[in-house]
C-alpha cells in the first residue's frame, strides 16, 4: 500500500513536475482548439455534399471516404502521415502532420453526426424557405443547417471531447502534449507518479465537460 502511494501519489513529485505538465496541458488545449473547428468544418462540408448532391458517384466517394477513415485506427494514421509523409515529398512539420491525421480521422465522425442532423430536419422547412424565393444555398444556410446543428449539438460536443482525448495519441510521435510531458517526467524522476498526475489533470479538464454533455443529452431527450 505504501509503495502504491510512493509510486503513484507521490505529492513531492507532483509538486515538482506540475509546472512541466501544465505546459503539456497547454499544448493539448491549443492542439484541440486547432483540430476541432477544422474537423467540424470538413465534416459539415462532407455531410452537405452527401445529403444535397444529386451526383451518385460523388455521394459514393464521400461515403467511401467516411467509412475509410472511420475504419482506420487514428494511431496508425498518425504514424503513416508522420513517418511516411516525407517519402511522398510532403515536408510537414510535427504540428501539421498531427493536425492532418486528426482532421482526416475526425472529419469522418463529424460528417456522420452532421448527416444525421441534416436528415432530421423536416422536409417542409426547405419547401417553405424555397417558396419565398430563397436559393438552395440560402435555405441551407439560414434555415436547414442551423436546425441541424441544434438537433445534434450533444453529439457535436461529444465528438469534440473525443478529440481532446485523441491528442494523447500524439505522445507517440513526441508531440509535447500532456501525456508526453508526463512520460518524459516519468523517465526523469524514475517514478510513475507524473502519469497519475496527468490522469488527474485530464479528469479535471474533461469530467465537467462530460457532465455538461450529459445535461445536453438529457435536454434533447425531453424535447
Amino acid at each position: 500500500m505504501d509503495s502504491l502511494i510512493q509510486n503513484f501519489f507521490n505529492l513531492e513529485i507532483y509538486a515538482q513536475v506540475f509546472p512541466y505538465l501544465l505546459g503539456g496541458l497547454w499544448t493539448t488545449v491549443w492542439l484541440s482548439a486547432l483540430v476541432i473547428p477544422l474537423g467540424a468544418a470538413a465534416g459539415l462540408a462532407l455531410a452537405l455534399g452527401l445529403t444535397q448532391s444529386g451526383s451518385r458517384p460523388l455521394r459514393w466517394a464521400i461515403v467511401a471516404f467516411i467509412d475509410f477513415f472511420r475504419a482506420f485506427p487514428p494511431l496508425v494514421l498518425l504514424i503513416l502521415v508522420y513517418f511516411g509523409g516525407p517519402f511522398l515529398g510532403l515536408e510537414l512539420n510535427k504540428v501539421a502532420a498531427v493536425a492532418l491525421a486528426f482532421v482526416l480521422n475526425n472529419s469522418s465522425y463529424y460528417a456522420e453526426v452532421f448527416r444525421a442532423g441534416l436528415q432530421g430536419v423536416a422536409k417542409g422547412q426547405m419547401e417553405a424557405a424555397r417558396s419565398t424565393g430563397l436559393t438552395r444555398a440560402q435555405a441551407l444556410r439560414h434555415v436547414v443547417v442551423p436546425q441541424a446543428i441544434r438537433n445534434v449539438l450533444p453529439d457535436l460536443v461529444g465528438n469534440a471531447i473525443e478529440i481532446v482525448k485523441l491528442t494523447s495519441i500524439a505522445s507517440v510521435v513526441a508531440m509535447p502534449e500532456l501525456l508526453r510531458a508526463a512520460r518524459d517526467a516519468q523517465s526523469l524522476v524514475f517514478n510513475p507518479s507524473p502519469v497519475m498526475l496527468a490522469a488527474f489533470m485530464y479528469l479535471a479538464l474533461l469530467w465537467p465537460l462530460t457532465r455538461w454533455l450529459g445535461r445536453l443529452e438529457h435536454r434533447r431527450a425531453r424535447r
Binding site: 494523447s168 495519441i169 501525456l179 496527468a198 490522469a199 485530464y202 469530467w207 462530460t210
Partner: peptide, 13 residues
Amino acid sequence: IMRSLPPLVVLIV
C-alpha cells in the same frame, strides 16, 4: 471517469 480519460492514459496507468 472512464469516459473522461483518454484510453491511452488508462492503459499506461
